[in-house]
């Protein structure tokens, strides 16, 4: 089956599973996970150096062929997100930026208003902006008009592994957005990822569910297969559902049928 490649910010992605580097018990697992899953885009975060400790360089575990998607986590305002984005770009991590502005510490809900403002500024500065948002169609259209390269609606709160709780709202984005829709946050199982792709999402971003699995390398592969299966199902146009049973085998020509017998009375 032919699939068009996904293009974001002028880069092509043949693999529609995007991944994250957070929460791995050992960062050396990241390279194995990238190899097993084939993921071509991965998130990283920017933090102050702990002056009392040395520390591992996360970028050493990510092959150069994988697109880095620095996030603006820790930002509480558009201004802070813009500052983090500029630092990430200056640090040589490319033009991609995941805007994540969070003011709510309990549910970690993204602040759509601040996120829109940051998108407007950063898109004008030539960033490839992927805003992480609550699925809100009018907002998604505003992000599109502001120059976002994609929109990333959440399925459920970050790290909750609860799946596509916002499915009906994400469906509106899938139906109406011209930029790619990447379902981010809350995807806890490969079946959730497959469901998002069956709905027509262009990609999914999975971090916690892979990183905190007992075997993150195998789980990366499982998610990759699920994403590919879901995508293929979407392109194949799924059959309709029905309230009543519809026999899969023909209801005529039974071996022991008497001519003119009514099929419905057959035991």
């Amino acid at each position: 089956m032919n699939d068009e490649v996904l293009i974001i910010g002028g880069r092509t992605f043949s693999n529609r599973l995007f991944t994250g580097t957070g929460k791995f018990a050992d960062n050396r697992l990241i390279a194995g996970m990238l190899a097993s899953s084939g993921s071509q885009m991965i998130t990283v975060a920017l933090r102050r150096v702990d002056l009392s400790a040395g520390g591992d360089n996360i970028l050493d575990h990510i092959p150069k062929t994988v697109t880095l998607l620095p996030n603006t986590s820790g930002a509480r305002t558009a201004g802070e997100a813009v500052r983090i984005a500029r630092i990430a770009r200056e640090a040589g991590c490319g033009d991609f930026i995941k805007i994540e502005v969070i003011t709510d510490t309990k549910y970690l809900m993204p602040d759509n208003y601040e996120t829109l403002q940051a998108t407007e500024i950063l898109a004008k500065e030539g960033f490839v902006v992927l805003p992480y948002v609550l699925p809100d169609l009018p907002l998604a259209k505003r992000l599109e008009n502001a120059g976002a390269a994609a929109v990333m609606p959440l399925g459920a709160p970050i790290g909750s592994n609860r799946g596509l709780e916002t499915a009906s709202l994400i469906a509106l984005l899938v139906e109406n957005c011209h930029v790619p829709v990447v379902v981010d946050a809350g995807i806890g199982r490969p079946s959730h990822a497959a469901a998002a792709m069956e709905m027509g999402a262009d990609a999914v971003l999975v971090n916690t569910a892979i990183a905190t699995a007992q075997d993150p390398v195998a789980m990366g592969r499982a998610f990759s297969l699920a994403v590919a299966a879901g995508r293929m199902a979407f392109l194949a146009h799924m059959a309709e559902t029905s309230a009543l049973a519809r026999a899969s085998s023909p209801l005529t020509g039974f071996l022991n049928a008497v001519e003119n017998e009514c099929h419905s009375t057959r035991p």
């Binding site: 994250g20 957070g22 791995f24 975060a45 933090r47 002056l51």
Partner: peptide, 10 residues
């Protein structure tokens, strides 16, 4: 001065 580095994040 801010001394920063990339770390794991989602």
């Amino acid at each position: 001065l801010e001394l920063l580095r990339f770390v794991g994040g989602g």
